[in-house]
């Protein structure tokens, strides 16, 4: 299938009074139609900043795109005008945000918020829009759409708000769905239902999905490929099997080990000691150096270049992970 997004050397920094925060520092990947790309990584590693800045949703300043390009549909999202971005957002590229409460307007009824984008982007009449919206609410498992449409966001539980966001994103038939922690607030039976729904839409329409999640189980279950980020850097990418069975990076390895599993009772959960570094005080080395059990001299001095086997790419000075 064709490539829908092509990201090269993407760097997005915040210029703050306390210094430069290198939130995204060199991201490369391709996304094909129908494909699901999982993005995992340390909290604060730049996943949300990357996605939000890609859609032009972060104020500049303080943010600045330092370098790179993001090719989508024959244009570069990095240099596209605000008008172009506005016509793409919530339409060709839809996004489900990590913070449903901040992306739903607390003063407007859910119905108004769902119906307006359809009337604006898709020229639907109010009645048509109502029908579409009710349909998508039912699809995401909101059994009483009439009540939902008449409610304000605070009247919903976290999971219900999240499902409303998902319904909203799906009404416009996007080419790419960007989902930042879309199912964290959901219980697993509903999560399974929603992930199934996304899969079937992908099959039907070729929609590509970028899925940010901390749940490695979800990645194992639905992603085709996976990208591992740490402190704004790309640490490893490959097929899910590359990442889960042939990982070449100590951070990925540690992540997998510290995931509690339902199929295994654990007396103790290994965790990675220390904390992620301050992104405004990064040195020239690998940002994982202080927490890595295999750290050596060169790790402190330079960031490694890529080691590649076909699609599998990893950034570590180690010859081979023991």
């Amino acid at each position: 299938m064709g490539e829908v997004l092509h990201v090269r050397d993407y760097r997005a920094y915040f210029h703050t009074r306390r210094g430069i925060v290198k939130a995204v520092d060199g991201l490369n990947f391709n996304l094909s139609a129908g494909e699901t790309l999982g993005i995992v990584g340390e909290s604060g590693s730049g996943k949300s900043v990357f996605l939000l800045s890609l859609l032009g949703l972060l104020p500049k300043p303080p943010l600045r795109i330092e370098s790179g390009s993001a090719q989508f549909g024959g244009m570069d999202l990095v240099t596209a005008s605000e008008d172009t971005m506005r016509s793409i957002r919530g339409n060709k590229i839809a996004m489900i945000f990590q913070e449903p409460m901040t992306s739903l307007n607390p003063y407007l009824k859910i119905g108004t918020q769902l119906i307006e984008p359809l009337m604006i982007h898709r020229n639907k009449t109010k009645d048509e829009a109502f029908k579409i919206v009710k349909g998508s609410l039912l699809k995401v498992g909101i059994g009483d759409p009439d009540r939902a449409l008449n409610a304000y966001p605070h009247e919903f539980s976290g999971g219900m708000r999240q499902r409303v966001m998902i319904a909203m994103a799906l009404t416009t038939h996007p080419e790419i769905l960007i989902a930042d922690e879309p199912t964290t607030a959901l219980d697993v039976t509903v999560q399974a239902q929603i992930l199934e729904l996304l899969k079937s839409i992908q099959k039907e329409t070729g929609m590509a999905v970028i899925l940010v999640t901390h749940d490695l189980g979800v990645v194992a279950g639905v992603a085709d490929r996976c990208l591992v980020m740490y402190a704004g850097k790309l640490f490893e990418q490959g097929s899910v099997d590359d990442i889960f069975y042939r990982s070449q990076h100590p951070y990925t390895h540690a992540l997998l080990k510290s995931t509690p599993r339902l199929d295994k009772a654990l007396a103790a959960l290994p965790s990675i000691a220390g904390t992620a570094p301050d992104l405004s005080k990064l040195g020239p080395g690998c940002p994982f150096d202080a927490r890595c059990e295999y750290v050596k001299e060169e790790c402190r001095n330079s960031f490694p270049t890529a080691k590649r086997t076909e699609e599998h790419e990893s950034f570590c000075h180690l010859e081979k992970l023991p």
Binding site: V40, G41, E42, S43, S45, Q98, E181, T184, H214, L216, A254, L255, S258, T259, P260, L269, P270, S271, I272
Partner: peptide, 8 residues
């Protein structure tokens, strides 16, 4: 809302 290493 935490990544796995921090979650652990």
């Amino acid at each position: 809302s935490l990544d796995v290493s921090v979650q652990a």
